[in-house]
Design a protein around this nucleic acid. Structure first.
Length: 505
RNA sequence: GCGGCCAUAGUCUAGGGGUUAUGAUUCGAGCCUUCCAAGCUCGUGACCCGGGUUCGAAUCCCGGUGGCCGCACCA
């Protein structure tokens, strides 16, 4: 709706103005859609999200790796992306309209069997069934395969592609993982890195990018592990906001808080290990600052589910800008990837179970970081109100780009000098902090509100008498006095959420 | 990629074949100021890019790029 559109523009305008998101990049050359720059505050925010993700995975016993973003064509032939990551398109020779060939055929002739057909096969099918352009009845041109991977080359002419997902590059290390993990499964690894998709026509700003940062966690495990997953015990009483496919078929998208153990009993999840992955994904999103009432877990309908997947759920975040946004997929990839890479590479990618070779299964938690980044901006945005005559961002303190701002009440030397000292102490303690003397004190508070800084420290004339400073709380706009010797510790506890501001007084 | 609409300071905007290109806000310097966008002075800052028409284009035309809407696409 237009009000949602306006909301998105309001946020992007603030994000541009205050140095979160710039673009489309490269701006001074006019820009290409699907590419954005992160300004200083956007990069800080993204780092904070990544740090939460990293900490959550490490705590769950995943190990981080990093792989190249470019791989030769055979990798993508094996992974299925070279053949499967394509859109077959046909252009009307008369009016120039472009169609997805397979969709068009099935739409007009639902009985046609085109499964697995190549571009030439689809061209042949169109001729055979006499399909013409639906808008002008003109003749349709030959079907071309439009691959969504970005192509490049290595050296003079070795065909190569930028990765469309990090996961595949992780799987290529499987033999190395077996050694590293001393032949013990399950083994869990994750990767945070860039991936590339040459979208035909990206829209919706930060939500559909041609270059983006992915986080993908992988668990390599055996079938018996999937059913007997000890860590499930830890989360069996945790609740998840589930929207099952049965509910969706009845038109009901309201999430139902369901205990994970009940979800297994009711058959919403087939495998405890998978359910645990869904919970881990959900927990990571909570740690990225999303409140529970803005999240839901939506099960894929059987029709949208990959044929090998027994379970398929997405984490969705509600935004004012675009409604529910799909942010994370939890996938049961089975042994598909390792089998394919074993076949194509001729390397043994199996383990021995009862002296027989078995290719392990893979469970995956996959999401892009720019989407939650945008969603967090969206969810944190507060418009101006009676209490506050500027818009502001209510980030959770731990995720705010700038955590503490330091002001001398006025730009007088006797205040600036002790304020500088306190600012240095705060920086020394590891906070991202900003010192500001410009403008009235009220204006400086508003500036920080606008970028979501949770706490401001002000040095005033009382500081000179008794060594106390004020800490001003973004959310309530209230202040408490704290002795400067205890300031860093107080800020640490406030930022970490160990103590509420209201209980400081 | 197609069709419709659109593109002016950091942000939001007014206007428009010859102008010193409007206003607000932001930002910078200074005065003032003892806690929530005060005031005053001064200052910085813009017509998306390329081509065409014209004596002259930011303005009109064409193309490109980007944005919004619709279609298609979203592994």
């Amino acid at each position: 709706m237009s009000s949602e559109r306006d909301f998105n523009e309001t946020i992007m305008s603030l994000a541009r103005k205050r140095g979160f998101i710039w673009g489309p990049s490269p701006e001074i050359y006019g820009g290409s859609s699907g590419f954005y720059d992160l300004g200083p505050l956007g990069k800080l925010l993204k780092n904070r999200l990544e740090n939460q993700i990293r900490a959550a995975f490490v705590r769950a016993n995943f190990w981080e790796v990093e792989c190249p973003t470019v791989s030769p064509a055979e990798v993508w032939r094996a992974s299925g992306h070279l053949e499967g990551f394509i859109d077959p398109v046909t252009e009307c020779t008369k009016c120039g309209q472009i169609y997805r060939a397979d969709n068009l055929i099935l739409e007009k002739f639902p009985e046609t069997n085109i499964a697995g057909q190549t571009a030439d096969g689809l061209t042949e099918t169109i001729r055979k069934i006499g399909l013409v352009c639906p808008s002008c009845k003109g003749e349709l041109g030959p079907v071309k395969a439009y691959n969504l991977m970005m192509q490049t080359r290595l050296g003079l002419n070795q065909e190569a592609y930028l990765r469309p997902e990090t996961a595949t590059t992780t799987y290529l290390l499987f033999k190395r993982f077996l050694t590293f993990f001393r032949d013990k499964l399950p083994a869990a690894v994750f990767q945070i890195g860039k991936a590339y998709r040459n979208e035909i026509s990206p829209r919706q700003g930060m939500l559909r990018l041609r270059e983006f940062t992915q986080t993908e966690g992988q668990i390599f495990l055996l079938e018996k592990d999937e059913m007997e997953w000890p860590q499930f015990e830890d989360i069996k009483n945790e609740k998840l906001p589930l929207v099952t496919y049965q509910a969706q078929e009845k038109g009901n998208f309201k999430p139902v808080m369901t205990k994970t153990s009940d979800a297994i009993k009711q058959g919403f999840f087939q495998k405890p290990a998978y359910a645990w992955c869904v919970y881990l994904g959900y927990d990571i999103f909570r740690k990225m600052g999303f409140s529970e009432n803005k999240m839901r877990l939506r099960q894929h309908l059987p029709t949208e589910r990959a044929h090998y997947a027994a379970d398929a759920w997405d984490i969705e975040i509600h935004t004012e800008s675009f409604g529910w946004v799909e942010c994370c997929g939890v996938h049961d990839r089975g042994d598909y990837d390792l089998s394919r890479h074993q076949e194509f590479s001729k390397e043994k990618l199996h383990v021995k179970v009862d002296k027989k070779p078995v290719i392990p299964n893979v469970l995956e938690i996959a999401f892009g970081i720019e989407r939650p980044l945008f969603c967090l901006l969206d969810n944190s945005y507060r418009p101006e109100s009676d209490e506050r005559d500027t818009e502001w961002l209510q980030f959770p303190p731990e995720l705010a780009p700038i955590q503490v701002a330091v002001f001398p009440l006025m730009g007088k030397d006797e205040l600036v000098s002790p304020a500088t000292q306190i600012f240095n102490d705060i920086m020394e303690a590891g906070f991202v902090s900003q010192f500001d003397v410009g403008g009235s004190i009220g204006k400086r508070y508003r500036r920080q509100d606008e970028v979501g800084t949770p706490f401001c420290v002000t040095i005033d004339y009382t500081t000179l008498e008794d060594g106390t400073v004020t800490i001003r709380d973004r959310d309530s706009m209230e202040q408490v006095r704290v002795h400067k010797d205890h300031l860093v510790e107080s800020l640490r506890r406030l930022v970490k959420g160990l103590v509420q501001f209201s209980s400081l007084e």
